[in-house]
Every structure is written in structure tokens, then in C-alpha cells.
Amino acid sequence: MSSETITPDMQTNSQKGKAMEASVEKVSVWYHMRRWVLSFLKYFSLVFITFCVLLPLASCVWTAAKTDAEYKTGNVMAMPHNWFNFQNYADAFKLSNMAVAFRNSFIVLVCVCFMTTIIGTQLAYVLSRFQFPGNAFIRGAFTIAALLPGIAMQVAVYKIMGSLGMINSLWGYIIMSMGTDVISIYIFIQYFENLPISLDEAAMIDGASYFTIYGRILLPLLKPAIVTALILKGVGIYNEYYAANLYLQDKQKLGTVAISLYAFTGPQGPKYNLICAGVIVTLLPALILFLIFQKQIYNGVAAGAVKE
């Protein structure tokens, strides 16, 4: 409005220019302020949430380094005198029989991962490559099985395991763990369907048997999907505690890493410096693998969850 009434002698062109520059500067100062505040809020929230998430873990780390005297007399939040006090780790390792637990977990992990990969890829190969009566039925059966929560079924599975004589046997536990893997089969089927069928046809013309096509041609191409499925299965098996606790009752001999920590629940009251050391020992393998395979783990988790 006012610009229309300005007379030429009141405001020269240069004055106009200056005013405009000032207003631009004002806007840009405002803009930078806003940006700075937003960025501050962003980092503040990130640091705050990460602090909250790490606090329970970090408190375990410093508690694990405390001697009994320090733990009993000092405040929980007080830092230990010697950060490299590994006595608790050694004690926890011995008390919960962790050497045996690690061996058992290793056996279970290797067997289950190997077998689920083999039978999972075989089933996926057949389901994705052949049209046969029952194909859709099997697919549907696996889809519905994914909906049934495992813990609800344990009431009846326990009786079946009992009648098969598989309670209190590492092999029984391994076989049971193999049977409930639906997500990796999904991942394999999806991946197979992306591999061109002309590969099979070319090999077939060259006289390859179905078994050769599966084992020599398709399986090597399936590597990324296998890595994804192995990570998901590996994390699941290493951390599985409910069925392990139920079926591996002789914990001294058969316990896995996840349930070895039960050794710390006793009548004498919790000695948390020891327990924290035990907790850290059990999650150390997971931490190391996570640091190495970070990217694959993220991919695996994303792929697995979408199918659920």
C-alpha cells in the first residue's frame, strides 16, 4: 500500500535496494536461527533417547567390574576403582557352567542353521519351480503356521515331545527348533521367484538332473537370501530361552547360553556384580557379530519383519 504513495524525492533507488538487502538479511538470520534450533533439538533428542537406551547396559558394565566390597558398600552409580577387574567374569563363567553352555549353543546353532537352510531351500525350490497338486496347499499351511504363536502351542508340543522321548535331549531340542521356521522359507521362495526359470531350462537341456540344478546352479545364486535367513535364525536360536528351559531340564549338562544365567537365581539373594558379568558374557558374542555384520543384520531384520 505505502509503496504506491512514495514520492520520488523521498526514496531513491539505492535506498530501496538497501531496504531490500536488510530484509533479506533479516530473513536469513531468522532462517539460520530456526535451522540451528531444529538441528539442536534433533541432536538433543537423539542423544537423550540413546542415553536412556544405553543406561541399563552401561550400568551393567561398570557393576561387573566392582569387587564384592565395592558393590556392597558403595552407591550403585559409583564407578569401580579398577575397570579391568575380570574376577567377576571368571567367577560367573565358572558358576553358570558357561563353557558347557557355549559348546551346547554352538552345536545347536550349527545344526539348526545348517538343516533349516537345506530343507528350507529345498522346499522353496520345489514350491517355486514345480506346479503340482498340493503346492498351494503347502504354501497356505506354512502361512497359517506363521500366525500361530509358538508359546501357546507349547502345552501340546510338550506332550508330543514327551511321547517321542525328546525331552531332556539336545537332539530333540534341535529337531524341534528346525520345525518351526516359516520366515526363512518365505525369503527363499521370494528369492527363487526372482531367479529366471531359463537358467533351469538351459541346464536341463544340457542334461542336468533336478538335483544338480538345485545344488549346483540355484543354491550358489541364493547366497544373499541364505545369509539373511541365517542371521534371523541364528539370532533367534542363540537367544531362545523358553523352549530351551522347558525341554533341556538337565541344565548342568544340556543348558544353552541363553538359559545358563538361570544359575544365578538362588536363595542367597542377588549378587548383581556377578550377575552383570554373566549377562555381559552372554551378550558378547552377539555384540561382536553385530559389529561385523551390521549391514546384513539390518537387512535381515527388515526382510524378516515384512513377511510376518
Binding site: G120, Q122, G179
Partner: peptide, 24 residues
């Protein structure tokens, strides 16, 4: 090959998922 490759996974699925389900 269909029978061979399907047998084990389907048997495991039946024994540890569907059989318990119906029994339950």
C-alpha cells in the same frame, strides 16, 4: 524330487505345529 524335498519340512510342520494345534 517333489516328494523328497517336501517330505521333511512338511513332516516337521505337521508334527510340531498342526498336530499340537489339533490336539490342543
Amino acid at each position: 524330487i517333489i516328494v523328497l524335498f517336501c517330505f521333511l519340512p512338511v513332516a516337521l510342520l505337521v508334527v510340531f505345529t498342526y498336530l499340537p494345534f489339533f490336539q490342543m
